[in-house]
Nucleic acid binder design. Structure first.
Lengths: 367, 367
DNA sequence: CAAGATGGCTTAATCGATTAAGTCTTGATC
DNA sequence: GATCAAGACTTAATCGATTAAGCCATCTTG
């Protein structure tokens, strides 16, 4: 039962404080921003008067307009914001970015927008930011185009070669190749792939060679290429490998996809999950099928999210320095905003984290 | 080696586009904001010219200033931003808030600021937002005061009764009491408490009765009260219960704290962790001590983060609707901004989620 | 004591848009 | 053919600050 004030007074502005004191707006402004420009006594009076008038401090938008700085950087993400928080990888990345922006005293604006409706394109246009970190977007995403039109400094993450902007990424192809080679080296010959989204036009289900070839998300593309290189390198038929595309990077989707892959004949002895989240889902699917990991089926993930080390069994995966990636991206953008010269592109190292979800296939010859 | 343009041209503004076309700025503005105000042909010409001039679209800060709307809401959090992303509870809450703001077309600005230095107080002051969601802050936090001074609409989360602002919370005391009663009901008599931070002045270690009584974080206070009510209700001595305060809500801290609690004589048969994150750490500590859960030690958490259902063994805990809490908070703030009447305070229900980390103590009489 | 330095405040231009109200055409209507 | 309405732009005020430059009085210094 909050009481509505009958007379909703206009919020006081700098000028009101100035008039109340008989000084000019410039002086009040200086009281806030450049204390050395006025006597301590007057400054104190200004601050006291401001408080008593209920002046909420210099309006951030007016200040931003005048100074040409928003004091925040924007993060652009392919999916809905609410989803970004469900993805441990995105969360870690954001944490890294936040560390950098926080150190620079900048805010972090999460820009809403699934690339569905026209209205969403307004989001990056309206965002009061000094630059963007653009994370893992499809090159043909209209949201990306809208952000680029702002002509602000940008840093890309996991989008190598997409723009001439600086960015940070890992070598997804090499990572994927390494983990696939790990399985092949253990002797696995029947593999299944649990893939992330292939294109912004989402769908779940088995993906045929055509669809696989049409993958537009840079990360998905790169990892598929890595798997392919290892598989072809081992003399296996790439087109014979079943691929299940998950419309969403979630445990549930991973579980459903893995279930389907486990039903293909002959049953794969190892599953390549393109993310740990999908891998955790696969772990569950194997359990539900009454099989065990790694005795019956080996599972590998990708990303090395924190939970991967705590699953049962702990997940063999490709370690990626997410936090560092975010940190670097943030620092790059901060440096860009400061007008510093910048390195063009940073590629961070990955390494295979062998844990307990992989073993040689039952009664198989060692590779 | 990005090439610096030798002559960094001023960014074109509305006026530049207008002049290039021989119309007024108003017309160009209308081309963007009110297409019905001009002929489709001219609008098209405006848009084309804008593009060819490299006009990045209406400046968000200028628009925001004029319209009196920032188009974003701020989130204020007690800790460092980077930390917020490490806390699954905060992440879920943010996800909920994001859902609401996204639906309203608003951005989400994460305001940096650990309450350390004077400089940090500038963050909430500089944030270009239309309102704040304030999450679980100590009432005496200067950051909170700084945000309040902005006199913007606010919604609190997990801070019942702290301001007269609308907010959302759960009944932490009842939840804590229920989970403690669950343990007592199983027959446990020797308990240990793994507590979250008691005050903004952080420290790790055993907390004596004085320090426990001085807890200022509303959530911590409330949960302690709940434990206390159950314990006292069971006829046990509250002051005899060892409490370990974790300076940070992390698995590592939980592990360290649990280790200490397990070393007290006589060893507790059950540990009350004030969060699932601490509980997961406790699980690890028990494992390291060569004991087993729940045979030797029962562990309960609080929060019911997603991972709690997947730990080994799955954690008995108090389920809290984090996502919903965020969603409600976001919706409340959006409604407030829209000038709608609002309910004052929402208290969301919790319930006990009994899983496999609790059992009667070994060879103990049933309670 | 004149010249210069310093401190303390004001002047006035400016940042880049939005929008209610007004003007001028052109076309329809009786 | 006068009247009105609608359509297409323009005028001009305004949002709330920041900041370089200027002005005046007071203090220092040789």
């Amino acid at each position: 039962m909050a009481v509505k004030r009958p007379f909703e007074a206009r919020r006081p502005s700098l000028k009101d404080v100035a008039e109340a004191l008989g000084v000019t707006a410039a002086t009040v402004s200086n009281a806030y921003n450049r204390p050395d420009q006025l006597s301590p006594a007057l400054r104190e009076r200004v601050l006291v008067t401001a408080r008593s008038l209920g002046y909420p401090g210099p309006n951030p938008m007016a200040r931003g307009l005048r100074r040409g700085r928003a004091g925040a950087i924007g993060v652009l993400y392919a999916d809905r914001l609410s989803y970004a928080f469900k993805d441990p990888v995105a969360v870690e990345l954001l944490s890294g970015i936040a560390t950098a922006t926080e150190a620079a005293g900048l805010g972090l604006l999460l820009v809403p927008g699934s690339p569905r409706t026209e209205r969403d394109l307004e989001a990056p246009r309206r965002a009061a930011v000094d630059g963007f970190v653009i994370y893992s977007m499809s090159p043909d995403d209209p949201l990306l185009a809208a952000a680029l039109e702002r002509r602000l400094p940008i840093v890309t993450v996991d989008m190598p070669g997409l723009t001439d902007a600086p960015g940070v990424a890992i070598d997804d192809t090499a990572g994927a190749r390494t983990v696939a080679e790990h399985l092949l080296g253990l002797g696995h010959r029947r593999l299944g792939i649990l893939s992330l989204e292939l294109t912004p036009a989402v769908r779940s289900g088995p993906a045929d060679a055509n669809r696989v070839a049409s993958a537009s998300y840079p990360v998905t593309r790169a990892r598929l290429r890595g798997y392919q290189a290892a598989i072809v390198g081992a003399g296996l038929d790439w087109d014979g490998i079943p691929v299940y595309e998950c419309a969403e990077n979630s445990i549930e989707e991973g579980c459903i996809g893995a279930e389907q892959l486990l039903n293909t004949e002959p049953r794969p002895t190892a599953l390549l999950a393109m993310s740990d989240t999908l891998g955790i889902g696969a772990l569950e699917a194997v359990r539900r099928a009454g099989l065990s990991v790694p005795a019956d089926v080996s599972i590998v993930g990708f990303d090395d999210i924190p939970e991967a080390a705590r699953t049962d069994p702990p997940l063999t995966t490709v370690h990626e320095p997410h936090l560092n990636k975010g940190l670097k991206a943030g620092e790059l953008l901060v440096a860009l905003l400061a007008g510093e010269a910048h390195p063009d592109f940073v590629t961070l190292p990955t390494h295979l984290a062998v844990r307990s979800s992989t073993a040689p296939p039952r009664a198989a010859p060692r590779g």
